[in-house]
């Protein structure tokens, strides 16, 4: 014990020097951003590969939760898009304000919810998709169904817990579509052959259409909001004695690999439908 105390007494100055030096290095690390950055980078080059591969494995366990969160976030973003609203000038406010600015009010026209596919076919002439949400979740007939990459179809029948969807690959499909580059409205139909190819009808022959032009929903029906992706033009051809172009459209939705779907609700559909029912052809 005495030896130990003696040792400390004799070497006290070394301890002082060591403590002061450590203090200096702490100060250097704290005050000088370049050395701090450099130290951090050296540490990172060692720990990064380990953390990366390990983190990948850890993330696998949280994927479903993360997926759910992303889904909610996506829904929020989708609900904020411009084509979800009816924009209208607020005439009283515009007249009352002294500046020249035009005041508008926005009314929500469409709302989103999501569902997962329980069953789907792609190889029949009258294909269908079953999703895991029904009337209990507020799904109703004639609602639009979207996938993350494009539109899918329309809800046809609803039970308590499930709904069936008529997808674009279905012989009765007829969706109002527009090619924005020429601003011409046509109808997308399916010919019963390949699940990822549809045809765009009613585009006159004199119009120039490029391969790769995108085909969007027109918003003329009460079902689909305006400006949603349907697909891209794959092939344009003219047939003899025809007044319209034959346009092959590559659908942007992969119908063989569907899982997550968004269901779009038109909040004013009954109002719009009551107007339309006055005409005999509806």
């Amino acid at each position: 014990m005495n030896n130990l105390i003696e040792f400390f007494k004799n070497n006290f100055h070394h301890f002082v020097a060591a403590v002061l030096l450590i203090l200096c290095f702490v100060l250097i690390g704290h005050s000088m951003s370049y050395s701090r950055y450099k130290i951090a980078r050296i540490c990172q080059s060692i720990t990064m590969p380990v953390e990366k591969s390990w983190g990948k494995m850890i993330r696998q366990f949280n994927l479903s939760k993360e997926n759910e969160q992303l889904l909610q976030q996506n829904l929020e973003l989708l609900r904020k898009q411009e084509n979800m609203f009816l924009t209208r000038e607020d005439t009283t406010l515009t007249q009352m304000s002294e500046t020249d600015s035009v005041h508008t009010t926005r009314t929500r026209l469409y709302d989103y919810t999501y569902a997962h596919v329980t069953f789907a076919t792609t190889d029949k002439p009258f294909n269908y998709i079953i999703i895991d949400k029904g009337s209990r979740d507020g799904i109703d007939r004639d609602m639009a169904v979207l996938s993350p990459t494009g539109i899918v179809g329309v809800v046809s029948d609803v039970s308590k817990n499930f709904s069936s969807i008529i997808p674009i690959p279905h012989l009765d499909t007829r969706i109002s579509a527009v090619i924005p580059s020429i601003n011409q409205v046509g109808a997308v139909v399916w010919d019963g052959k390949e699940a990822d190819i549809a045809y765009l009808n009613d585009i006159p022959q004199h119009l120039e259409i490029n391969i790769g032009d995108s085909v969007l929903t027109s918003g003329y029906s009460t079902i689909f909001p305006k400006g949603l992706m349907i697909g891209t033009v794959k092939e344009v051809s003219t047939e003899q004695n025809a007044t319209f172009l034959t346009i092959k459209v590559k659908l942007s939705t992969d119908f063989k690999n569907l899982d997550l779907l968004y269901v779009v609700k038109n909040l004013y559909r009954s109002e719009l439908d009551s107007l339309k029912s006055n005409f005999k052809n509806e």
Partner: peptide, 15 residues
Amino acid sequence: HTLGVNAAASIILMF
């Protein structure tokens, strides 16, 4: 504005 650098060097010098 190089907190610790000269201090550390001076301690080494003293050593």
